[in-house]
Design a protein around this nucleic acid. Structure first.
Lengths: 234, 234
DNA sequence: TCGGGAAATATGTCTGCACATAATCAGGCT
DNA sequence: AGCCTGATTATGTGCAGACATATTTCCCGA
């Protein structure tokens, strides 16, 4: 009961090529026939072959270079796409009711680690928010966020009690670049109290920095409650 | 010192559209002009607009449907792509010398959790490998892997002492689907001994199941040494 | 022998056109 | 009102041809 009975068009060509890649007919590191030859073989226009091969290149199977031709990447490093969630959606998708609690709000100079992540040369004062996200009143994640309010027009209309910074910023504040760092940390006493978990539990952490044209916007660190898992398919 | 001075062609149109999205000229949830109109506005062929908008749709900005037109997605859920590393490359990219040590090899019936992840209905015996990956002789990650040897032709020629299962399987064994689960766990005594870290340290774990047409191939769980971080850009 | 520059070549992209496909809309029937 | 059906319309895809661009290759001169 597969959804694709028999893809036609460029997808059919992509699938045929994929089959050769998987079977080893086109071996890793080797050059594959050029677009014109494949177009002749499959009886279609070169543009159609181009579309198919471009898709495989995006998926990480092929390396294409002008003049040099298309070769199979030696070690097919596959890519998984991780969707960056709005926490409220993540919680609600799990069937729970979302809420959040503002733990603290202040203006301060961020620690060196945060300044480094944001590429801030000087010690400016940023808005610092600490929020706890809850799923059915059970702690879900702890959010530690620094915002450069100068980079966020309309910040005055933001009420952190009413809507979480996570949600307010997403969709409202444009950004061009971001970095995501995943790690693990041990629950310190205070964190354990907030998350309602034993001290020393292992927490999945997610740090995100976002920029608009090299201009730092915000840095956020999410500490998820123990047992939380991030899942993707590829 | 940006690499792109002024992208021309379909990328210019994509950038122009992106600017409208970011500025809010095309508001979330709204319908944007159709391809023909945009082509007229930008003075190019419809196919060129199509290419640009398709790119934005892939990036998660737009939702395009036949007849219904193209609308801005309400909550721009952005995607980060995580490249799945071959551990040796990961280590060598860090400037360290890679090596690995086979801790155990056996045939056994996997625990229920593994069977569930692989969707194995019955209790078959699989090949079980436990490997320690080292960077400059310092423990880097602990790998616990189960392989369905029936699904891997040529497994007889595999010498787990010479080359790690991680590397041998990648590039040699085709697969169509995979699942990736990220989590965190506390270092148990034995794990701490292997990784040379204190008991109770927080470890970033990565579980991967791979399939070929719904046929389970392998399940692997990597436990990274404390402090390890996974980084991506988006 | 060692550059340096010209020619060759594979992919990248654009255009204009055509038809396919899906979703919506409007009209007509019960 | 409710439902079915056919027209409409925006996107999806295909084709042929053309030119752009990046690299490699090769040949020639110093």
């Amino acid at each position: 009961m597969r959804s694709d009975a028999a893809p036609a068009g460029w997808q059919a060509i992509r699938d045929a090529a994929l089959e050769r890649l998987r079977s080893g007919a086109w071996a890793p590191g080797e050059l594959i026939p050029n677009e014109a030859e494949l177009a002749a073989e499959f009886g279609c226009a070169r543009a159609t072959v181009n579309r198919a091969l471009r898709d495989l290149a995006e998926a990480g199977w092929l390396d294409r270079r002008r003049r040099a031709g298309t070769r199979v990447v030696p070690h097919p490093v596959r890519k998984a796409t991780l969707t960056i969630p709005v926490i409220r959606h993540e919680v609600e998708a799990g069937g729970a009711r979302y809420s959040h609690r503002l733990l603290s709000i202040a203006r301060a100079v961020p620690p060196a680690a945060v300044r480094a992540a944001l590429g801030l040369p000087c010690a400016r004062r940023l808005l610092h928010l600490v929020t706890l996200h809850l799923a059915d009143a059970v702690p879900h994640a702890h959010e530690d966020r620094w915002i450069d309010t100068d980079a966020v027009p309309g910040i005055d209309g933001f009420d952190p009690e009413a809507v979480s910074a996570n949600e307010w910023l997403v969709g409202r504040v444009p950004y061009t670049e971001g970095r995501l760092v995943l790690g693990a940390e041990v629950a310190a006493p205070e964190m354990a109290r907030h998350l309602g978990c034993p001290e020393g539990a292992a927490l999945l952490t997610l740090e995100r920095s976002t920029f608009l044209h090299d201009r730092a916007i915000t840095w956020v660190r999410l500490c998820h409650a123990p047992g939380h898992r991030l899942t993707t398919s590829f």
